[in-house]
Design a protein around this nucleic acid. Structure first.
Length: 250
DNA sequence: GTTGAGCGTT
């Protein structure tokens, strides 16, 4: 894809692809085009993106029309700081169009002796390659680590919240059904007073005296208050399950 | 809103 108005690769018959590495995740083809176009005729700029997230994968391909210009771009832009990151520019080697590009790029005579001289496959890549591809496509390693941490955090949060929910959601909703915000506000007040004078509030609410929220107190109390405020400020916010929205009944 | 070695789309 490119912003050249064409869907798919242009005529890459006589183009020379450059691989741009270490670009910022926010860098787009529009950002790279003017930069590379200064050194020659840029045919296309393509930034592979994640199919799921749609975000940049951190590298791009710039196709030049002429090799000397591409080489000049490599020479000039390699190591250049773009969008706060030092990019790496080099000739692309792999890819769906690598062969055709190699044809114009003068195929290396290496493949006849070097790789053959080893008398074995260049690399023991069978499905490891796909794994690697999927690995890269899937996400970067740090990303995985981040997801793992986030998942752990979310799990913990869920656990934490579930325990909080099992403390009072049923009664709150039930009470809300029977009575009005007055009670809810009262409950909220009891919570607030609980932090100030936890003498009778907890006993009235019949909450376990030993269930003293230590650090979890802040979010719970805040949620309760915010919830009550939300209902007070916007009484018609929930017409579906808000009986107080229709105060009058025949 | 996060991250950082590498090789690509209709």
């Amino acid at each position: 894809m490119s912003h050249f108005g064409r869907s798919g690769p242009p005529d890459i018959a006589d183009t020379y692809s450059l691989l741009i590495l270490n670009i910022s995740f926010r860098t787009t083809a529009d950002d790279l085009f003017p930069l590379f176009d200064k050194y020659g005729k840029v045919v296309d700029v393509f930034i592979p993106r994640d199919r799921r997230t749609g975000e940049s994968r951190g590298f791009a391909f710039v196709r030049y029309k002429y090799k000397d210009e591409a080489q000049k771009a490599v020479d000039k832009l390699d190591g250049r700081v773009v969008d706060g990151r030092e990019i790496g520019v080099q000739f692309a080697k792999y890819g769906p169009n690598a062969e055709r590009i190699d044809k114009g790029r003068i195929v290396e005579p290496v493949s006849k002796i070097k790789t053959r001289a080893r008398s074995r496959s260049p690399r023991p890549r069978c499905r490891d390659e796909y794994r690697d591809r999927d690995y890269r496509r899937s996400r970067s390693r740090s990303r995985r680590r981040y997801d793992r941490d986030r998942y752990r955090d979310r799990e913990r949060s869920y656990h934490h919240r579930s325990r909080s929910y099992s403390a009072s959601p049923d009664r709150r909703r039930d009470r809300r059904s029977s009575k009005f915000d007055d009670e809810d506000r009262s409950r909220s007040g009891s919570y607030t007073s609980s932090s100030r004078s936890p003498s009778k509030a907890k006993y009235e609410r019949s909450r376990s005296p030993n269930q003293r929220p230590s650090k979890h107190e802040s979010p719970d109390v805040r949620n309760g208050e915010r919830d009550s405020q939300l209902h007070r400020d916007v009484p018609s916010g929930r017409p579906a399950n808000s009986p107080s929205a229709s105060p009058r009944s025949p």
